[in-house]
Amino acid sequence: MFDLLGISAPAFFGQLLIGVINGSFYALLSLGLAVIFGMLHIINFVHGAQYMLGAFTALLLLNYLGIGYWWSLLLAPLIVGAFGIVLERVFLRHLYKLDHVYGLLLTFGIALVIEGTFREFFGSSGQPYGIPPELAGVQNLGFMFLPNYRAWVIVASLVVCFGTWFMIERTRLGSYLRAATENPALVQAFGINVPLMVSLTYGFGVALAAFGGVLAAPIYQVSPLMGINIIIVVFAVVVIGGMGSILGAVVTGFVLGVVEGLTKVFYPEASSTVIFVVMVLVLLTRPTGLFGRA
């Protein structure tokens, strides 16, 4: 079959793997955006910077405190998430009653400040972050080689995405979140501290981005620009999936990662634009996105 198509099997599976890996990050990041948008109605343009902060936190924890990958996977999301909560309390809180565009502008501005600051201190070239020794090595699957660390990234992303979906759609806490998305005033009148819940939701969405950043550190380089590079694609993913749909964000993230990877096999010239072509097609036919509710 591969001969007929004029491509080699290893090239095909290699690109497929890269697609799934990219999809893992698209899914994690668009999930965080969807969680934040659902609750705060803020289009969180600092999401890419927060992903970059996750990776940098891991790098700095290692360089200055000798804290390794596994602890960073826990600590960096907590640290960056806490920073997110401060951001929500100090800035975002004042925007909820205004048009979405204010939230977008403010978070875009904050992203520029953060990324500019990091470029000032660390330069724009990337810094390497080693793969944890437990995950070094490669599996030979017969038709391709699968690096252990990449397998781990896919599994970790799937588990976190599924866990988040489960928490929101199937638990008591999730029912508070869904209800507060619809009618926060009434949920608060039932005795639930909605402003606190909003802060924590934002912190959680930011922590997801930081978690993605730590996962990404050993694969891509840790660089102040890593967030800008990925976030534009992630916004296209969110538009395609539909703002605010949890499941939509995850599924669309993985699928578009694969679509992008396969395009690289069959028509490499289009690989960096295919997602935007899909976005245009979806916007023309289903303006609310594939999983969005009108």
Partner: peptide, 21 residues
């Protein structure tokens, strides 16, 4: 309002406030 609710008052709104999700 969440502090007031916690004192022991409950509200059933005119528009009923049933959550669709």
């Amino acid at each position: 309002s969440h502090r007031i609710a916690r004192l022991g008052i409950s509200f059933c709104p005119e528009e009923r406030g049933i959550f669709a999700s």
